[in-house]
């Protein structure tokens, strides 16, 4: 554990809390993509199956459970809790996630897992873990698309997406730190590539986020 990794994890937790708070304070789901969180729930459920097989640390287990429970809670709040439920506009959140996210990531994960491990080293848990890495890298896409449609970004919504992006950016710093200071550190290229891709998807958002913070004005995206 290093400071970047811890800051990344905390940033992730913080973003989820900010979103839950935002839903409860504003009592609406305008500009929020439930599909992004459904993708994240799939990511966490497929990645954290090792909760049942391996114990790493109390910190590790608690965070995994926290991510799963809080993400499920976001989905539940938006889809089932009134009055928020009736403010959620399904037609704006229409990203075809099975076709464009889940299926391609499943194919890609199967190919890389077979190349990396071979038939003899095949492990279903490892395969799902690899799948989750791919899926996470693009899980924010539905949210970015919804944002683009609403264009005006509410303060807390902007903050939640910012901390979501900061999380993966801090993980990149964590990998750089580990590669330099850890003995026997192994490079993991699939994780690096997906982590960088995930961070790059936020670059445009970061740009307008900081611009609006600097000017103190309203946060709007260009057409």
């Amino acid at each position: 554990m290093n400071i970047f990794r811890l800051a990344g994890d905390m940033s992730h937790v913080f973003s989820i809390l900010v979103l839950l708070l935002r839903l409860r304070v504003a009592k609406n789901a305008q500009g929020i993509s439930v599909r992004t969180h459904e993708l994240f729930l799939i990511v966490f459920l497929t990645r954290y199956l090792d909760l049942f097989t391996t114990f790493y640390s109390l910190y590790n287990s608690i965070m995994k459970i926290l991510y799963i429970v809080s993400t499920a809670s976001i989905i539940y709040t938006i889809k089932f809790q009134e009055p928020i439920k009736s403010t959620y506009d399904k037609s704006q959140d229409s990203f075809l996630y099975w076709q464009f996210a889940v299926a391609p990531c499943a194919v890609l994960a199967s190919v890389t897992h077979l190349i990396g491990s071979g038939i003899s080293g095949f492990s279903f848990i490892e395969l799902l873990w690899t799948f989750s890495i791919y899926l996470e890298s693009i899980a924010i896409l539905p949210q970015l698309i919804v944002l683009q449609r609403y264009r005006e970004v509410e303060n807390l919504t902007g903050n939640y997406i910012f901390f979501m992006g900061a999380y993966r950016f801090l993980y990149i710093l964590n990998w750089i730190y580990r590669a330099n200071f850890e003995a026997h550190y192994q490079h993991h290229w699939v994780v690096y590539i997906c982590g960088v891709l995930q961070t790059l998807l936020y670059v445009d958002f970061f740009y307008y986020y900081f611009k609006s913070k600097k000017s103190g004005g309203r946060f709007t995206l260009p057409t």
């Binding site: 990794r5 994890d9 992730h12 090792d50 391996t54 790493y56 640390s57 590790n60 965070m63 995994k64 991510y67 890389t112 897992h113 990396g116 491990s117 080293g121 490892e126 873990w129 690899t130 890495i133 993980y171 964590n174 192994q186 993991h188 699939v190 994780v191």
Partner: peptide
């Protein structure tokens, strides 16, 4: 043994 990554990371 994990092939692609450190499973201790979240």
């Amino acid at each position: 043994n994990p092939v692609f990554g450190d499973h201790d990371e979240l």
